[in-house]
């Protein structure tokens, strides 16, 4: 297996910088990753970095496009794929929350009491569905692709389920948190066959675990 480069899916966006730094610390050759430009794949000795949309990292890993990868717990849960989750890397903390407009506080509860159904807008229908199923609440899920906070403002949904790191965007849109859904941090994930046939995956997992063991941040 060592006759080809290890393929690692790494997420663009907010997790990117920490991910690259950590992989560098783990001894991988991260030349060229600081400024990948328009490159989708960066090949260095021993390793191919596949730069993907954060939500696609579990997809690449599960279907064998990459041997292993890094993604947020949030995208992993939402993807509902058969991937091995190996290490909590303890950065990229964010949380899923249910929120509603401050101005309409209580209106959603009142609607639920009357109808027995909540209408919830979200980019994460799977997480939202399983959250409300566990609570025994009927939720009508409105899948959106961005600017979720608009939905309750224009009366399209009672509440939203969205991700927030600091809560700033929510506050700026006059939304208040109703409850927590789950906390999320970055995870090292692996293709299940690669985990069992390629020792480099296990070695990297062990190195990453060692490097992040003493980090304070853990999942809520």
């Amino acid at each position: 297996m060592a006759d080809r480069n290890l393929k690692i899916a790494i997420p663009k966006g907010s997790l990117y910088a920490d991910t690259v730094a950590l992989l560098g610390e783990a001894g991988l050759d991260i030349t060229g990753l600081a400024d990948p430009g328009r490159h989708l794949i960066i090949s260095n000795p021993g390793v191919d970095f596949i730069i993907v949309r954060p939500t696609d990292a579990p997809v690449f890993t599960t279907y064998g496009g990459a041997d292993c990868g890094i993604c947020g717990k949030d995208t992993l849960v939402e993807a509902e794929l058969d991937t091995a989750e190996l290490v909590d890397l303890k950065y990229g903390y964010c949380r899923f929350v249910v929120a509603e407009p401050e101005a309409f506080a209580g209106r959603a509860d009142e609607a639920y009491e009357r109808l027995g159904v909540l209408r919830v807008a979200t980019k994460y229908p799977n997480i939202t569905r399983s959250f409300y199923e566990k609570k025994g609440i009927q939720a009508d899920i409105v899948k959106m692709h961005g600017n979720i906070e608009l939905a309750p403002i224009v009366g399209m949904a009672d509440r939203i389920v969205d991700i927030t790191a600091t809560g700033r965007t929510l506050r700026e849109n006059h939304l208040q948190v109703v409850e927590e859904v789950l906390g999320s941090t970055a995870r090292f994930i692996a293709n299940k066959a690669a985990l069992r046939t390629d020792p480099r995956v296990v070695e990297l997992a062990e190195k990453l675990e060692e490097l992040t063991r003493d980090n304070e941040l853990t999942m809520s």
Partner: peptide, 11 residues
């Protein structure tokens, strides 16, 4: 037991 090939994600 499970048998794996490097190229295939499932057993």
């Amino acid at each position: 037991f499970k048998a794996f090939a490097p190229e295939v994600p499932a057993a």
